[in-house]
Design a binder for these strands. Structure first.
Lengths: 334, 334
DNA sequence: AGATAAAATGTAAGTACTTACATAGGCGTA
DNA sequence: TACGCCTATGTAAGTACTTACATTTTATCT
């Protein structure tokens, strides 16, 4: 069943059928009706590949993420997919892991699959060593590249991100002002996002005249889904490192700290205050519930898809938008 | 840059270039080398749409789920995507919500996008009213349909599921044998999967000579991500319904029960035992950690993708495989 | 060396659309 | 009535591959 069959049965040319299918003008109401009824009667649907070949697009966007089992990324995918779908785009999902080679490989693969654009979820795709970002620059020659929660200045790259520096600074400052000065910063990846949070933490200490002590900045690159191991990690830290609060770069880590406190019999928030990041479902799961930074994922996703649709419609769009996170106060802080 | 350009520069015909690209035999080593070096030099990649048109496939699988923000479905997507990617397939993700019309609409859309097959994640796609399953039968005319954790007998439909009846029966029986007879069953959807669990719960009671009381089977169709509202729901149940254990169809619900116990000051598991389902990240998040049924999601995903690859390679594959869930004993049961 | 088979390569016909351009027909105006 | 313009429709040339079948080249055997 092709456009030729339809044109024959409707007694018109294939161009007319194509015009009807694509809602183009210049078709008389009579003809349109006739063609539509034939299409309906035959249950015809145009071949997507042929259409893609002719239009050089199949209305498909690539979503690249390092690890979709991570709650933040999974939620981002959820929101992005929904917004794209509402705009008549579908998405191809591809998880890369955190290695450069695979990130490169799969970005390439999506470009070669001829997606209209690609959205990179999370700051794992941007490396500090700038040479390692060349694979992104390469992709921009073909299609626009959108970054969710990552910062990268380049032609045909569009970013939407949260001001992690500011939110970490505010969260840490709040702790200090509540009387807690010994604060552990806990992070599990060295992405830009995590490092911006670390900077914010450091600035808060400096602004308050407190010392920066590297042993209070703990890096635990474990499996983010293995919550008990996070508690174990905290138990393994040198007991000389005494702290009364934890600022964690992620709710998972913060939950690990909650578990640690339970194990040690520390009362939360009196003996240990905890602040997480992302306002994920984990933050309402524990007792007491987690104080956490909401980084407005839904707004970011909404904005990034809006930007994308604008670009694909040939509009000029802003290349970077920075949102502000919001501290959601629950039970793990005073 | 097309296959014609390459053929010209390499001094061979386009058929030969195509053979080299597709790794077909019948090309001399010399010729292959020459063609490959030209391709390399030009940075040529074949046009995916033209390829799709010629082969009637773009190596793409549709993944349909009702709600990818649900932990179970998100994890399923994660595992399925990984397995597919390892087999050289990409996936188009599409979330439908729980309404029939949208499930129908988006299944159709994927079929029309010419995916090679479609995997339906979760039993939300199968209705009790069999007429509402016709949209699936329709799709099977075009492509194989795979169901993850749902049961449906039809040609060109392949299922992988867990024996929810058995696991619920065993979990409930275990509670009874530990001395708890008043057990609340809590569920948040009326999918086949949830109803099979309910059956298992009922059978356990019956086998032990205990009465079936409808007020002990509570349906709470709220937002699965709003954990506090689950606790509130439990608080709102008629106080005459006295129970010392909760079997929940999902870890989210079980966490709600944990929160409820905290609010009421009930000690877990002595005053209230709780069993969840899915062994999701939530189950290690709370205090004490959740006893839960692991339904072997990863195995199911592995099997379903394996089956799919077999089908697409023209092999005969089993239409249904049923795994057994396993009770993971943690702190919320005696 | 010549016949024959096998391997390598080429030709051309799909695959199913979109769209620039050509043409026809209807209408209003001079 | 003739001309021009606008709308509706058709023709045909892309779009870039795959692959059946034809042809040429190479190898093998007698």
């Amino acid at each position: 069943m092709t456009i030729y069959d339809i044109s024959e049965k409707a007694g018109v040319s294939i161009a007319t059928v194509s015009r009807v299918l694509n809602g183009a003008g210049n078709v008389s109401a009579q003809t349109r009706q006739k063609v539509l009824s034939v299409i309906e009667a035959c249950g015809y649907t145009p071949n997507a590949f042929a259409r893609g070949l002719g239009l050089n697009s199949m209305n498909t966007i690539g979503i690249l993420c390092a690890d979709s089992s991570d709650l933040y990324q999974a939620n981002a995918i959820y929101h992005i997919e929904r917004e794209l779908r509402q705009n008549n785009y579908n998405c191809i999902l591809c998880c890369t892991g955190y290695g450069l080679e695979d990130k490169q490989k799969y970005l390439n693969l999506l470009v070669n699959k001829k997606v209209d654009s690609v959205i990179l979820v999370g700051s794992a795709f941007i490396a500090d060593n700038d040479a390692e970002n060349d694979y992104i620059r390469e992709a921009t020659k073909e299609i626009p590249v959108l970054l969710l929660n990552a910062d990268f200045d380049f032609e045909n790259v569009y970013c939407a991100l949260c001001d992690d520096f500011k939110s970490a600074l505010q969260a840490t400052t709040g702790l200090i002002e509540s009387g807690v000065e010994d604060i552990l910063f806990l992070y599990d990846s060295k992405t830009h996002s995590a490092l911006r949070k670390l900077s914010g933490y450091q600035s808060a200490l400096t602004q308050k005249g407190l010392p920066l002590r590297t042993e209070y900045m703990q890096y635990f690159p474990g499996n983010h889904a293995d919550l008990p191991s996070i508690a174990d990690f905290l138990s393994s830290i040198d007991p000389a490192v005494q702290y009364r609060a934890v600022v964690a770069a992620d709710d998972n880590l913060a939950i690990g700290a909650v578990k640690f406190a339970h194990k040690k019999g520390l009362s939360i928030p009196n003996e240990l205050s905890i602040i997480g990041y992302n306002n994920s479902i984990l933050s309402t799961c524990c007792e007491p519930e987690l104080t956490t930074v909401d980084n407005r994922l839904e707004s970011l996703c909404h904005h990034i898809v809006n930007t994308l649709i604008g670009i694909l419609n040939g509009q000029e769009m802003p290349q970077k938008v920075i949102f502000s996170g919001e501290l959601v106060k629950r039970g793990t802080t005073l």
